[in-house]
Amino acid sequence: MYYTLKNLSPTQQIGALFVIVFGFLLLASVTVFALSVRDHEDEAYGERLRKNLKSVDGVIRTSWVMMLIFWIGWVTGDWVALTLFGLVSFFALREFLTLSPTRRGDHRSLVLAFFVVLPLQYWLIGSGHFDMFAVFIPVYAFLALPLASALANDPLRFLERNAKLQWGIMVCIYGMSHVPALLLLKFPGYDNQNAFMVFFLVLVVQTCMVTQHLASRKLQRPPVAPAISQSFNWPSWWLGIAAGSLLGALLAGITPWVPGTAFAFSFIACVAGSMGHLVMKALKRDRGIPSWGAHVKSVTGTGGLLDRIDALCFAAPVFFHSAKWYFDL
């Protein structure tokens, strides 16, 4: 099996990978559905189980959407993938800024953020200006945006407003844009297989988050920072990190690395991702909301896009830059 896969061309390998992952997702969806319609003797127990299943179902749905995006991106080429990730950035930033009380004076800087900074960042990646794309936002955008706000002549809560806008840009644009940037990183002897790197990162981080989520439900340990998160505790955090890193080591075959290196980089990505998720939870508590997304609880009760992708937004830049630095690419 392993050798058959190894002997395929990179394109065939990626194709096979998608078939396998979609198969797993299908299996997971069917299992969750079957469990949710099963009858239980004990009504209360069944109710609790169904509630748990619902949150698992949410995670599976996110995975479906993510995999579909990757698949479309892979089938249609780099620019389409970049556009898709750009749209994700756009909608995430929209959610983030809806909950930050901006004032009229911020209008120009918001226009700049959405319609100048965001497209430029993705264009820099697409055209391979790696040195520029790493510093474009922290150096140039963070100088221009407060200037636009200052020119609007409104000093009220100036630092707070600008800090929020910059945070939103950092997480939603800068962080997210590092995921497709992996597509263009040139590892020696690893041509046309960069879609694997994106897949690798997303799968590892997502596995870490799901494991941590499930473990914290099962273990019921006292939370480390109950005012921020009721579910975050160290044992389940370690379990999540371990699961993500081990999966990374197992998947070393699809990366340009040996298992040890793959383990180390997965570890870095998982730590950054899960910590980032906790930071985003703190931001949500600050705004007094359970999840991003619609300001008022929506009819469907779904959370926001940002709840699902925040770990990735923190993991991607750390993963990207540590790999770039270590291998001197």
Partner: peptide
Amino acid sequence: EVVPVPVLCSVT
């Protein structure tokens, strides 16, 4: 203003 910015809105 002329250029709109994206913000989530709702009509109740």
